[in-house]
């Protein structure tokens, strides 16, 4: 399982010599020298900023004046603030609906791309293609597709007798619009699934077929357990991506002259967007730092919950 593999000890060269040994000290210097770019990077781009961010979250700080210590004020303001809860709600809406659907779509897509038919490399390339399109381009492209008068989406819906909504103007429809756009770029997830499907030993299917299992049974009894470690990885990666979603809603909600926008009725304001606006449009750096910490803790807790439940549904190769 990709996420855990590095933590297992066997891959780390264990030092046979005792510390303090001459060559061990030489190795230490060598290691530090080779790792020095990242050690510097870690100190300046991670360690200090994390600590600083925690500090700022307890201050009132607008970028120009020195930070003023306010204790837990930013956090108590946050919890009493409907915009905070709305942005959290929007983000959880996207995550709770988006993650399972993205996983299902990718898995279904991978199944199709695994069919024994000619031209699969081409189909696979086409499915992945949207993932290399710059996200800003994707945003404008979807704004155009979702246009109520000239867009293709409502035109196609019309062919089925469905009167398409005003996707980006009606608060109830903006989040489905964001989801549609994100599902268009599940090509990466699909390709990881495709690789996993190809790794499932063929004998297992043959054995199941002899037992008289139909396609659905074979999927439940063979495929799903065999790919469950990959699913765990995908769920975590997709989850983190959705919890931090920024550019898609930001572009879909963009207004003339780039005034701070949250979409109709605030329906597109995600947590990361709200954080950006507080920091760079309202210059409330302290408050925004507090939001960043909430996001950090939220991501951590949800990831740990998923990992904790994974023992129940992730099939381990050992047993």
């Amino acid at each position: 399982m990709s996420l855990r593999r590095p933590a297992s000890a066997q891959t780390i060269p264990s030092s046979a010599r005792k510390p303090g040994d001459r060559s061990s000290r030489r190795a230490l210097w060598l290691g530090l020298a080779f790792a020095s770019p990242f050690i510097i990077g870690f100190l300046f781009l991670f360690a200090y900023p994390i600590a600083a961010s925690a500090f700022y979250s307890f201050t009132d700080f607008n970028l120009f004046q020195t930070p003023r210590w306010v204790g837990l004020d930013n956090y108590s303001q946050m919890f009493g603030n409907p915009t905070f809860w709305q942005s959290l709600g929007n983000t959880l809406y996207l995550t709770v609906i988006g993650v399972p659907l993205a996983i299902i779509i990718s898995l279904a897509g991978a199944h199709l791309l695994n069919f024994p038919v000619k031209g699969q490399p081409l189909y696979r390339a086409l499915v992945y293609l949207p993932s290399i399109v710059p996200i800003v381009v994707g945003g404008y492209l979807w704004r155009w597709l979702l246009n109520t008068q000239y867009g293709f989406l409502n035109y196609f819906l019309g062919l089925f007798g469905i009167d398409g909504p005003a996707w980006l103007q009606e608060p109830d429809w903006t989040k489905p619009a964001i989801l549609l756009m994100t599902f268009w770029t599940v090509g990466g997830t699909t390709i990881i699934y495709l690789a996993a499907l190809k790794d499932v030993p063929q004998e297992l299917y043959e054995a199941a077929e002899i037992d008289g299992a139909g396609a659905w049974r074979r999927f439940l009894n063979v495929t799903w357990p065999m790919i469950s470690p990959v699913t765990l990885f995908q769920v975590i990666v997709t989850l983190i991506a959705f919890l931090q979603i920024f550019t898609q809603p930001f572009i879909l909600a963009q207004q003339r002259l780039n005034t701070p926008s949250a979409g109709p009725g605030g329906s597109m304001l995600t947590f990361a967007m709200s954080l950006y606006q507080n920091a760079f449009a309202f210059l409330k750096m302290g408050y925004a730092s507090g939001m960043a910490w909430i996001l950090f803790v939220l991501t951590l807790v949800i990831t740990l919950i998923v990992l904790a439940t994974s023992k129940k549904w992730v099939h381990s190769a050992n047993n």
């Binding site: 246009n147 109520t148 008068q149 000239y150 909504p165 005003a166 980006l168 103007q169 009606e170 003339r256 109709p264």
Partner: peptide, 15 residues
């Protein structure tokens, strides 16, 4: 009808 207005506004040309 708010939804009808939303649809009409979505087709607005450049100010």
């Amino acid at each position: 009808g708010p939804d009808k207005i939303a649809k009409f506004v979505a087709g607005y040309g450049q100010y």
